[in-house]
Design a protein around this nucleic acid. Structure first.
Length: 568
RNA sequence: GGGCCUGUAGCUCAGUUGGUUAGAGCAGAGUGCUCAUAACGCUUUGGUCGCAGGUUCGAGUCCUGCCGGGCCUACCA
C-alpha cells in the first residue's frame, strides 16, 4: 500500500482567501486526498497558515491588533472556513508554531555547517515614520527611467525596468507615504543556492512526468542569466522565526528573523510534527512521513500550489533539504495551477472584486463551489469565473443531472412500492449494457484522478451521472410497471445501485452532497469501487431527499453580478 | 527585452507517438417521454482547427515566420 503525503500551499495569513486561492491549491489537494483515502491508501494531508512577513504585520496593524493575536484569530477564521468547504486536512497548522521554529533553526544550522550560508552586508531602506525596514516594493517614487510617479522599489510597473529602491527619485513609504527614509547598513544571511545548481538541475531533469508549467519555471530560474542566484533568507522584522543556529545564538544576527519563504515550506514538516502532537502520536510517527531513514522511503509526496509558488517548491525548498545533507523527503510530484480570473479580470482584495471564501459559503452550499471550481480548475491555462457559468453548471450538472436523478428515482419508487426496495424481477440486456458503460467510465475516471487531471475527472463523473438518466429513460419503469411490476422492481433496484455508486464516486468532488446521497440508503461504504457494485437488496429501506440541489435563478444571479461586480 | 504557455464549433474545452467523414458539455433547432427540481431521453444545426509558408503519401498534430491572448522575470508571499 502506498503512503501518500499531500500538502497544499500554505494560505497567507493577512486575510480571508478568495476562490482563486482555494482552487489553486487547497481544493484540488482535498479532492486527491479524498480519492486516495477512498481507494484505501494511507494518506496524510497537511496544510497550515503562512504567518510571517511584512504583509502580516501590516494587516495586524490595520486591524489594530498585535500581530500574534491577529494571526491567531485569522488562523481560526481560515480554519473554520476550510471546514466549511470540507477540506479534509489531517492537520491545519501554523507556521508560527514552536515545531516550525525549531525545524527552521535546525535547517539553518545544518546549512551553515555545510557551508551553504553566507553573511552579506547590504543596504536597506528604513522608514522612521513606520518604524520599520521597508521591502523594496514598499518603497515608491518616481522612476528614473520613464518618470512614472508610482514606480515601486523593485520594478517600475510602467516601463517594467528593474529598479533598486535607491534609484527612485523622491522615494516614499508605500505604507505611510512618509518621505523620512534612511538607507541603513544591515547584515543578512544568504542561502548559496548557486552552489546547488547542478544537483537541482539533475533532480529537475529527472522529473519527466511533471507538468510543463512546473518544470519550465524551474529550468528558467536555473539557467537564466548567470544561473540560480543566492537568496537572502533573513529579514529585519520582529514577527518570525528568530535567527539561530539550532538552539545556539547566531552572532551578529540578533533581533533578526528568517525570511518567510525560508520558514514557510519547512512548515510542511512542522505541521506534520504539530499533527503528531495534536493526535497523541510520537515523533517517530511524524518522522516516518518525512525521513527516508525512518520510514518515508515508501511515501509518495505530492504538492499542490499555484504557479507563483513554483520557484520556491522546485528550487528553494529542495535546496534547503538537499543542503541539509540529511535524508529528508523530497517532493515526488508537483501539481501547479494557473490563475482563476473573476469575470474576465483579476480577483482583487483592495477593490473588493471577486468572491471570498467566507462570502461564498454564506451564499451557496460548499459543494456548488467545489463542483464549479474543480470542473473549471485552471490546469492548462488561466480560467475565468463568471456568475453565468457558475449558475449554468450548478443548475445543469448538480440539479438537473444528479439531483433530479435522485429525485425521480426515489419518488417513483415510493409511489409504486413504498419506502423499501421492492423484490422480484430479472435483469435484462439493458442492465448488462449499463454495467459495461459504467465500468468503462469508472476506469477512465479512476485514471484521471490518479493522474490528478481534475477537469477530465469531473467531466467523466458527470458522464456517469448522465448514464443514470439515460438508463431510466430507456428502461422506463413507469411504463413497464403497468404490465410487469416485478421487472419495474428490478429496474428501480438497479437505479438505487447507481445512486449508491454516485454517493461513493462523487465524494472527492462534492462530499456534502455525496453524504446526502448515501443517506438515501443509509449506506456507509465509502470505498472507491472499481466496477459497479451489486444492486442493493430488496427490502432495504430508503428515504426521499427533498430538493437535494436548489437551483440558482436568474434574479439571484443578476443580484450577485451587481453586488460583486461583473463585467465592466 | 528575455523565457514559457496559448489561439479548435456562439461559449467552455478534449483531441494520445502526424493517418480515413475533427469530438464533448452548454447554448440553438426538432422530437419523444411524463417517474422527476418546466426536470430527463433521442435526433440535429454550428468549425477552410489564428494567418502565411514548409516537411510528408498524409498535419489540428512537426518546422519557420507573422498576428493575437496570458504568465514569469528572483525584496508580496
Amino acid at each position: 500500500m502506498t503512503r501518500h503525503l499531500i500538502t497544499s500551499a500554505l494560505p497567507y495569513i493577512n486575510g480571508i482567501k478568495h476562490l482563486g486561492n482555494l482552487v489553486g491549491s487547497q481544493l484540488p489537494a482535498d479532492v486527491y486526498a479524498r480519492f486516495l483515502r477512498a481507494k484505501g491508501d494511507e494518506v496524510l494531508f497537511i496544510c497550515a497558515t503562512d504567518e510571517h512577513g511584512t504583509p502580516a504585520e501590516l494587516a495586524a496593524a490595520k486591524a489594530g491588533k498585535d500581530v500574534a493575536d491577529f494571526c491567531k484569530d485569522m488562523w481560526k477564521i481560515q480554519s473554520d472556513i476550510a471546514d466549511g468547504f470540507g477540506l479534509s486536512f489531517d492537520h491545519f497548522g501554523r507556521s508560527s508554531s514552536p515545531q516550525n521554529h525549531a525545524l527552521t533553526q535546525a535547517f539553518a544550522a545544518k546549512l551553515y555547517e555545510n557551508g551553504l550560508i553566507s553573511e552579506v552586508d547590504e543596504e536597506q531602506v528604513y522608514s522612521h515614520t513606520d518604524g520599520r525596514y521597508l521591502p523594496d516594493r514598499y518603497v515608491e517614487g518616481t522612476c528614473p527611467n520613464c518618470a512614472y510617479e508610482n514606480a515601486r522599489g523593485d520594478q517600475c510597473e510602467n516601463c517594467t525596468k528593474q529598479l533598486d529602491p535607491t534609484d527612485l527619485i523622491n522615494p516614499r513609504s508605500a505604507i505611510s507615504g512618509s518621505t523620512e527614509l534612511e538607507v541603513r547598513a544591515t547584515k543578512h544571511l544568504y542561502l548559496k543556492q548557486s552552489m546547488m545548481r547542478e544537483k537541482l538541475q539533475e533532480w529537475i531533469d529527472s522529473k519527466t512526468d511533471w507538468p510543463i508549467l512546473t518544470t519550465s519555471i524551474a529550468k528558467k530560474w536555473l539557467n537564466d542569466g548567470d544561473g540560480l542566484q543566492d537568496r537572502s533568507i533573513t529579514r529585519d522584522l520582529d514577527w518570525g522565526v528568530p535567527v539561530k543556529r539550532g538552539d545556539e545564538p547566531w552572532p551578529g544576527m540578533e533581533g533578526k528573523v528568517f525570511y518567510v519563504w525560508f520558514d514557510a515550506p519547512i512548515e510542511y514538516i512542522g505541521a506534520t510534527a504539530e499533527w503528531a502532537q495534536a493526535n497523541g502520536k510520537t515523533d517517530a510517527d511524524w518522522r516516518s512521513w518525512w525521513r527516508n531513514d525512518e520510514g518515508a522511503q515508501n511515501v509518495r509526496y505530492t504538492e499542490f500550489m499555484a504557479k507563483d509558488n513554483i520557484p520556491f517548491h522546485t528550487l528553494s525548498f529542495p535546496a534547503t533539504i538537499m543542503g541539509s545533507e540529511e535524508p529528508w523527503k523530497l517532493v515526488d510530484y508537483i501539481k501547479g495551477f494557473n490563475w482563476l480570473l473573476y469575470e474576465g479580470g483579476k480577483f482583487s482584495t483592495s477593490q473588493g472584486r471577486g468572491v471570498f471564501m467566507n462570502q461564498a459559503l454564506e451564499l451557496f452550499p460548499a459543494d456548488y463551489w467545489r463542483w464549479w471550481l474543480i470542473s473549471n480548475a485552471p490546469e492548462g491555462s488561466d480560467s475565468d469565473f463568471t456568475w453565468e457559468s457558475f449558475q449554468g453548471q450548478v443548475n445543469k450538472d448538480l440539479a438537473d443531472v444528479l439531483g433530479n436523478f435522485a429525485s425521480r428515482l426515489t419518488k417513483f419508487t415510493r409511489s409504486k412500492f413504498g419506502e423499501t426496495l421492492p423484490d422480484g424481477g430479472e435483469d435484462s440486456e439493458l442492465e448488462t449494457k449499463l454495467r459495461e458503460e459504467v465500468n468503462a467510465r469508472l476506469v477512465t475516471l479512476t485514471k484521471h484522478l490518479d493522474a490528478i487531471e481534475l477537469r477530465k475527472a469531473a467531466s467523466e463523473l458527470r458522464a456517469i451521472w448522465a448514464l443514470g438518466n439515460e438508463y431510466l429513460q430507456e428502461a422506463a419503469p413507469w411504463s413497464v410497471f403497468k404490465t410487469d411490476p416485478e421487472r419495474a422492481a428490478a429496474i428501480v433496484r438497479m437505479g438505487f445501485g447507481l445512486l449508491d455508486l454516485y454517493a461513493r464516486i462523487s465524494a472527492p468532488f462534492i462530499p456534502h452532497l455525496s453524504a446526502q446521497l448515501a443517506e438515501v440508503l443509509n449506506s456507509n461504504d465509502t470505498s472507491w469501487p472499481s466496477t459497479l457494485p451489486h444492486t442493493p437488496k430488496a427490502g432495504t429501506p430508503f428515504t426521499v431527499p427533498e430538493n437535494l440541489v436548489a437551483k440558482i435563478d436568474d434574479e439571484t444571479r443578476d443580484e450577485l453580478i451587481e453586488r460583486f461586480g461583473g463585467r465592466d
